[in-house]
């Protein structure tokens, strides 16, 4: 999360280009939305016991379980003006859709037909496979989100605060029916690299840009290092 914010900040200062970042989490982590109540949403003890990190995002939206080998996270940092040039739009809602097209095209690369569902979801045959969240600073958009490779609903329910009485096989079955993932849709366990490759192609096609592979700049790394302390602080985590 510190890196996403570092890219956003560096972009607002004109020091880096528009950026697509694709990554996984190590260890697994729960991220909660800016407005969410930590103690209502996350079972901190369960997270501690399982070695799962907990982090508050600068973006709104819901809690996400970032399974270290079960999902890919994307983040896009792009100037509003640039995105508008590529895909004319006027509202925040429309900008979600414009950026989520990258995911739709990426899924198409993997022969998965998906659709965008406002506000921030991507569905495959009615089942959620991805959720996104967005914020803006000085004319620059940061949109990030998760794309499920597989679903571990049982662990997700343990680390998030779903009342333990409510966690039944029936409920897990119901939720499994409402979500899906890449392994299930393709019928095989793809390497993360293959998914990332598909997403790169997808974003290039959706946004009509040619992406150039690169590393974080020393400036971004130093910002990330600085922001890391805030993300790790009790004040930030317990902000709400």
């Amino acid at each position: 999360m510190a890196v996403d914010e570092a890219i956003l900040t560096a972009r607002t200062e004109g020091k880096v280009p528009n950026t697509l970042r694709l990554y996984t989490w190590k260890p697994s982590a729960v991220s909660i939305g800016f407005f969410q109540s930590l103690h209502h949403e996350v079972d901190l003890e369960e997270c501690r016991n399982r070695g799962v990190d907990v982090v508050r995002r600068i973006t709104g939206g819901g809690a996400v379980f970032h399974d270290s080998d079960g999902e890919v996270t994307y983040s896009v940092v792009v100037a509003e003006a640039d995105l508008k040039r590529i895909t004319p739009h006027s509202t925040i809602q429309e900008s979600y859709e414009a950026l989520c097209k990258g995911l739709l095209e990426g899924l198409k690369e993997l022969a998965i037909a998906a659709e965008f569902k406002p506000i921030n979801d991507i569905l495959v045959a009615g089942r959620k496979i991805s959720g996104s969240a967005q914020t803006r600073r000085r004319g620059i958009i940061l949109q990030h989100g998760t794309l499920l490779l597989k679903s571990d609903i049982r662990t997700m329910f343990r680390v998030l605060k779903v009342s333990k009485e409510k966690i039944s096989d029936k409920l897990i079955k119901e939720v499994e029916e409402r979500v899906t993932n890449i392994y299930r849709e393709t019928g095989r366990e793809l390497a993360v690299e293959e998914v990332i490759g598909a997403l790169v192609k997808g974003f290039q096609r959706a946004l009509g840009v040619k992406l150039k592979e690169g590393e974080l700049s020393p400036y971004e790394l130093s910002l990330a290092e600085e922001f890391k302390h805030r993300y790790a602080s009790k004040e930030w985590l317990e902000l709400r």
């Binding site: 969410q36 709104g60 939206g61 914020t135």
Partner: peptide, 8 residues
């Protein structure tokens, strides 16, 4: 909650 509000 899990809504969005901009600016946050």
């Amino acid at each position: 909650g899990d809504f969005f509000l901009y600016p946050e």
